[in-house]
């Protein structure tokens, strides 16, 4: 009897971790870009800001795989270096956003009362400022640098993470085991760490991925407007901005960074839509 249950659990465990083909492709692309973000500069065929071609907006060739940009710099190199900014800044921002937002959300849901009410209302109101606009105003006020970008993006998206985590935690908070833990006299840190957090981790992870996509899009948009990563460095959005005049020529210098962004965001979406059932089940 016990053996039977154990084997069944093992079988379900094996099945539960299986991921389908679409999810696997998404995972592969995400891992690829993570690899590029770390090792990109070592893979780059040319120095990043060296003008290697006398022709600007060159097409794709054996020498320059992705063509050259508006100054005749190698586009592949620029994109490999840009990955570090796009992926790095977004990842730092999303981790900060989710840490702050999820912690505050769990605390608000567990404590309740006026603390919860005031915080929720304030964050709802803040949600009525469009994200791009809020980041524009902040960058206009304090200037753009990488720490400012990370903090701005994290602040904006921690509001969403807060609302998401709070809604989940409010449900968990009414469960019997939380009541029991409370009756036992457990304190707030124990409650959120041991009772609430393990029960919302699945959806929070899916939300983490989705928020990462939003942050990549917003960061690219900001850089495209010239308010993100500042020249001579460039993330992928900045690369599109630099080379926008090549658009009328249909130059690969405009297309390739856009394709890089799209491949990252779409594959993260594909991955979280097809997460292994083991993780998904927790989210229901």
């Amino acid at each position: 009897m016990t053996e039977d249950i154990a084997s069944r659990r093992a079988a379900r465990g094996r099945l539960g971790w299986r991921i389908n083909a679409v999810g696997l492709i998404g995972l592969a692309v995400v891992v690829f870009w993570a690899f590029v973000a770390i090792f990109g500069p070592m893979l780059a065929p040319y120095p990043v800001s060296e003008i290697v071609d006398f022709d600007y907006f060159g097409g794709m060739s054996a020498q320059f795989w992705l063509g050259t940009d508006y100054l005749g710099r190698d586009m592949l190199t620029r994109i490999l270096y840009g990955a570090r900014y796009t992926v790095g800044i977004s990842l730092a921002a999303v981790m900060l956003a989710c840490f702050i937002g999820v912690t505050m959300g769990m605390v608000a849901a567990t404590v309740g009362g006026w603390f919860d009410a005031v915080l929720s209302r304030a964050i709802d109101a803040l949600g009525c400022v469009p994200n791009l606009l809020l980041s524009l105003v902040i960058v206009a006020a304090v200037g753009s640098s990488i720490p400012v970008l990370i903090l701005t993006l994290a602040a904006i998206y921690s509001c969403g993470a807060f609302r998401f985590a709070r809604a989940l935690a409010v449900n968990v908070n009414t469960a019997d085991y939380v009541k029991v833990a409370r009756a036992r006299g457990e304190r707030l840190p124990y409650l959120i760490r041991e009772e609430i957090f393990p029960n919302i981790i699945g959806p929070v992870m899916a939300d983490f991925g989705l928020r990462f996509v939003f942050i990549v899009l917003l960061l690219s948009g900001l850089s495209f407007l010239g308010l993100g990563v500042q020249p001579p460095n460039a993330d992928w959005g900045g690369l599109v901005r630099e080379n926008i005049s090549g658009l009328a020529l249909g130059a690969p210098a405009v297309l390739m960074p856009s394709i890089a962004i799209a491949s990252l965001t779409i594959s993260v979406n594909m991955l979280i839509d097809n997460l292994p059932t083991r993780i998904r089940d927790r989210s229901e």
Partner: peptide
């Protein structure tokens, strides 16, 4: 369209 940046 939703999952790529507006400028794209």
């Amino acid at each position: 369209v939703i999952s790529v940046p507006e400028f794209m």
